[in-house]
Nucleic acid binder design. Structure first.
Lengths: 195, 195
DNA sequence: TAATTGATTGTCATTGCGGAAAAGAAAATG
DNA sequence: CATTTTCTTTTCCGCAATGACAATCAATTA
């Protein structure tokens, strides 16, 4: 009955456009108007499919954190024990000199959005808690003999290294583009083997 | 001749108010109007002393990065060799369970502002480059025997740990409030002594 | 006291954006 | 063909913030 729904495709379109806007123009610059431009739809479309601006940001957040960002956690859970840590390291410190994920800027903006919106903040809290947990699982898989405390410290350290580096990368700091973080990360891990 | 200038005090007032706005309402919420509220001055005052919104943000950035934020770098430079590293560690990982500096949110917003404004981005680039350098100096002072590469890795690692942790602290992530980062940081340093 | 410099206040037009609703078009079903 | 459902387009309104300008007011000096 009725005309077939475009909601799925349209929503996807809108979410992608929203991500690009956040990345290029920041939270402030992510207006319904601009999202509509970026997506090639009309502003009314956005309102029709997603709702008002607050809802757009909320939906975008859950979309992001159940999609690409959660991929990482799923991968770790699915991987064999001896694969877990290499996956983590690649994800966190990617390959060599490549710029880090494009999502960094987007995530920064969402943190800001979370100042005003409890829903967004909650979504992120939950996600990052389990992300750090996933890293810890990977560390545990590789170093079953290490103490829980040391594993936890190492896992959280790895995570912070990656976050901090991605922040510095936005300044195009010379240090951020080299392999420095990865070296630091490996130093952390190495210490886990020694003790 | 003429009426004495209030520029110094007023500018200070305005800068502080701008900082509070950025912290509480984000970049988008930092309007001339709100800054004027927050400072107790009229909007015309802001325009009179600082200029338009873009200039406000530019001036705030340089104000921040030549004031409190640069304090750290000056301190390191002035300190005796054996004092340098303890100062760095305290600055980066503060004391125990306290929330990290209030400036974190502000700085995040400035990064966003830097997307659109070259001046702001340049200011931050310069500052962070020398901040990391200061950390490296401190590490070098404590570990003169270590290789330059290892020192650089450690210094940058320390910095990223601190940045990453402050980011996580904004989610009120349980891991961020404990002493985990500091432990990771000390692990990094420890490894420097061993080799 | 007059002149000057800067502080302070007030006003007005413009713009960009968000919110809401109505009206029209298209595609499915009975 | 009539009906229903959803898509699509259009229009209108209001708000909040900016930018620019003009007009007082206050303190200092010659």
């Amino acid at each position: 009955m009725g005309r077939p729904s475009m909601a799925a495709e349209r929503t996807e379109q809108i979410m992608r456009a929203t991500g690009r806007c956040l990345q290029k123009h920041g939270l402030a610059g992510t207006t319904l108007e601009r999202v509509s431009e970026e997506s090639g739809l009309s502003r009314s479309h956005i309102r029709h499919y997603v709702g008002n601006r607050d809802e757009l940001l909320r939906k975008f957040t859950t979309w992001l954190y159940t999609g690409y960002e959660a991929e990482f956690i799923r991968k770790i859970a699915a991987a064999a024990d001896r694969e877990k840590l290499p996956i983590v390291m690649d994800y966190l410190f990617s390959s060599g000199f490549l710029p880090i994920s494009d999502d960094d800027a987007v995530i920064r903006e969402l943190i800001t959005a979370g100042i005003a919106d409890d829903g967004i903040r909650a979504t992120m809290q939950v996600h990052y808690t389990s992300a750090v947990q996933a890293v810890e699982d990977a560390v545990a898989a590789e170093h079953p003999a290490a103490s829980p405390g040391a594993r936890r410290t190492t896992a959280y350290g790895l995570w912070c290294l990656a976050m901090g580096n991605s922040m510095m990368a936005e300044f195009q700091l010379p240090a951020a583009s080299g392999g420095l973080v990865r070296a630091a990360a490996e130093a952390l891990l190495e210490r886990l083997s020694h003790d």
